[in-house]
Design a protein around this nucleic acid. Structure first.
Lengths: 243, 243
DNA sequence: CGACCCGAATTGTCCGGACATATTGCGGAG
DNA sequence: CTCCGCAATATGTCCGGACAATTCGGGTCG
């Protein structure tokens, strides 16, 4: 527990975690100046490279804003019920803030219509899990989701548990792969009878559909999910930073 | 025009542009291995820092995939009619790939309902421009858009021209500010009569609505736009990379 | 022939330094 | 008092080097 035991991972992540925790704890109010790079170098005993890498992460998350000559300030903290998303960590964080109940529905083969709709290969086979995501257990449904798992992960599917973590994160832990790229397609469409019933909305009501595909670091599609959100109850929010 | 005249901007952007152009020109097929970092250092006569910064950009754009020990390969080139988006440059690039016609519609004050809908301040005043975006001039409409410009930029609004560039980019050039953060909210809703008529779809048909707010580098909201895309004609596509 | 090991190749992490460029506040000139 | 310019400060760009972690091929040994 001393200086000779580096707890985990790269040092810039530790610096980033420290700063993130400090901001979350309110040590720096919204709009407040953060310490300068060189001050952070001294405090953490690392080089400017490491500090800048840490700050780069926080900027990508939307926590801070940086300006040459001016300094680093805490950016607007997003309001509730919005899903900020700029990197994988944020994506998983959102999932941890809501509830997901699912049931296994067996093996499916994608029809060509589905394949086109989901931008996946026709005829491919997947283990289908269906579920509902809620903000709070028993509360209003936020989304109905079909999760398609790569059959190669069959042995780990039985161990999946409903709760506040993504199936993808659970599979990653169980099967021991690392997160690679995540892609998502977003579109609007009219609710069918199944979505209407599950979400408690009218048929043909507008739905926000998000198709996410998760790859491991070798590029294999581990899982893809099809989420349908009621249009009047869900807003997808994100930000993009320059440079 | 020789080696003593650096054409523009940072060197890593020049390296990134070179590589992007080479990939676009087909010099590296999809999945093909790119030169290693040290090879790129030699070729461009820059340090590894510069090459890595360039590659970092291309990775953020989704053009390449990198793996430790393995190398750098060209990633899947996205299919048409999808809008990849991971940074501001891509956002502006998409706009440059489509056509936008607009007309000025005067000054407006946001009602509290609009303010809540757009996540903006109620009672704020904006210059309203309305327009339609198409893939090709005279082609099918991709979106109907209301652009709200900060009244402080009034003197530059008259000079705005329809075409293949965003109003935001034009304003930036004219008024001399730099791009800061872009935020967007995405939701699904039913088409009203105005959207139905403009887009040639049925009333109550599902719409994908994207509200984007553009800030300059000091955090001021320069402009925000409300785009309504027909649900069956538009898919918003993006990707997220780890680390 | 197959399983294993080792080493070359490649990207990731990290250091210390240097100069460039933008911002901001201060003080002096008018 | 106002405006201008300068200097201090902070982040951006860039260098050269070093070592770590991972991948992948090839060679060795059973």
């Amino acid at each position: 527990m001393n200086s000779t035991t580096p707890p985990a991972g790269p040092r810039y992540l530790q610096v980033a975690d420290d700063l993130r925790a400090a901001i979350a704890a309110g040590h720096y109010a919204e709009g407040a100046q953060l310490p300068t790079e060189s001050a952070l170098c001294d405090r953490h005993g690392v080089s400017r490279f490491t500090v800048r890498e840490a700050l780069r992460r926080l900027q990508a998350e939307g926590l801070i804003r940086r300006r040459r000559g001016s300094g680093t300030v805490v950016d607007t903290v997003g309001s509730v019920l919005r899903q900020p998303l700029s990197d994988v960590a944020e994506l998983l964080q959102y999932a941890a803030d809501s509830e997901f109940d699912f049931e296994r529905r067996g093996m499916v083969t994608l029809s060509s219509a589905q394949a086109a709709d989901f931008a996946m290969a026709a005829g491919s086979r997947w283990i289908l899990l269906s579920g509902i995501r809620r903000m709070t257990p028993g509360g209003v449904p936020l989304a109905v989701t079909d999760v398609h798992v790569n059959p190669a992960l069959e042995p780990h599917v039985a161990a999946l548990q409903p709760g506040r973590q993504t199936l993808f994160a659970q599979l990653g832990l169980a099967a021991g792969f690392r997160i690679g790229r995540v892609e998502q397609d977003i579109r609007a469409l009219a609710a069918g009878s199944r979505e209407a019933a599950a979400l408690g909305i009218a048929r043909r009501a507008p739905l926000l559909r998000i198709v996410r595909s998760y790859r491991d670091d070798s590029g294999r599609i581990v899982l893809f999910s099809v989420s349908s959100h009621p249009g009047d109850r869900f807003t997808y929010s994100m930000h993009i930073d320059p440079a």
